[in-house]
Design a binder for these strands. Structure first.
Lengths: 222, 222
DNA sequence: ATCTTTCCCACCTAGGTGTGAACC
DNA sequence: ATGGTTCACACCTAGGTGGGAAAG
């Protein structure tokens, strides 16, 4: 809704802000957490489920931030940009392009923008611990607010925006990590992805074999 | 910690702020939600459990707010003031004074201050839905941050503070509701209180009789 | 003895998983 | 027939209840 307009309006100020040499976020640094885990999924092409009511992401997008002005107020936003112009298809154990992407929406942030629930908050708050986007939900239907709508079988890359909110809004950072690319699906296509999700997501523990669940007692399980 | 000093410093500005005639919160109104439920407990003297790791309140303190400046930034704080100078005792089915209160702390907010997790946020955020303090936890031990420490068998009344955070902090509201008075206990004293808690708190549903759980099907239960 | 606190417990609420059959 | 989506489900995580025995 209006957040989308806000973001594009504010984005044009990024360059201007830098030219003015605003000193408050001179040494800003944003680091992706759990990068090793993300890369495990990335290596075999990550997939994220989309459902009518919205599905959480796993792995969870988590960043540690430093270099903000502790006493200034910021909001953290997330959007999902198409990674290419393709629709994808999983055949014979690999993902191959299958026609042009469906373009649902011309603006920048086709699926909507997720506002981190801690927003707005002081720089000190965002820096005291990693910022976790575990509550963002991906959907393939038009839904109530707070969910991200994506096209199934299309590839996306999450983008993080840090906005300084004050008398004048100002985009402070606009970063993205290739490790977090994924293809939206309504059901997992690659069995190896399913296996990784089950292995690392605690909520999927029901599907772990008994032997995997008692790694320290190899003789007892089974 | 520093929040306590902030509050007392800011409080002295309340009168000054009013004299300046700051117009932003002219028609401020704060209403207690679920007041009927609170009064059911108040009538027989409410009790709240305190534990080492902290116990939630039931009923939950919930207020609806109007009259804030939608685009100004506010924080919502809660503290618990001694309602009298007594220590209380439950004998023969009623609460009677039993000696003078133990005074653990001379300042105003002896048990600490709870900051609503949505803080800080815009006036529009606080007004779009009732503000719920369901996550506040009461304890009788010195603990990590975010919990309120109370003396068992002492009577308290919660106080809500709304602070406008900006270049200059300013206390906007300071309200309290007698309906929300309670005596802190480590175990319920009055069986009628226990019965009310079980009847209305969904988390205590395990202790509801079968007949109470199927009110619409009187013939089926039992 | 009495009063108060602590601890473990069974039983809930609330909601996040992939499965597999059904559906389109 | 094929490929993609939906749904109910069992099984988890995570954590909020008062009970009751035990401890202080």
């Amino acid at each position: 809704r209006c957040m989308s307009r806000l973001l594009s309006a504010v984005e044009s100020e990024l360059q201007a802000g830098r030219e003015k040499g605003d000193p408050t976020e001179r040494g800003l640094q944003v680091t992706l957490e759990d990068a090793e885990l993300w890369r495990k999924f990335q290596q075999i092409t990550n997939e994220m489920i989309v459902t009518k009511n919205g599905r959480r992401m796993f792995p969870v997008l988590k960043v540690s931030v430093s270099g903000l002005d502790p006493s200034s107020m910021y909001s953290f936003l997330l959007d999902f940009m198409p990674a290419d112009g393709c629709r994808w298809k999983f055949v014979n154990g690999e993902w191959v392009p299958a026609g042009r992407a469906e373009v649902r929406n011309e603006g920048r942030s086709p699926g909507g923008i997720y506002i981190h629930p801690d927003s707005p908050n002081f720089g000190a708050h965002w820096m005291k611990a990693a910022v976790t986007f575990n509550r963002v939900k991906l959907t393939n239907k038009v839904n109530g607010e707070g969910q991200i709508m994506l096209n199934s079988l299309h590839k996306y890359q999450p983008h993080l925006h840090i906005v300084c909110v004050g008398s004048q809004h100002r985009l402070v950072s606009n970063v993205s990590f290739v490790e977090t690319q994924f293809i939206a699906v309504t059901a997992y296509q690659n069995d190896e992805i399913t296996a990784l999700k089950i292995k690392y997501n605690p909520f999927a523990k029901a599907f772990l074999d008994a032997k995997d669940r008692n790694p320290g007692r190899p003789g007892l399980a089974e």
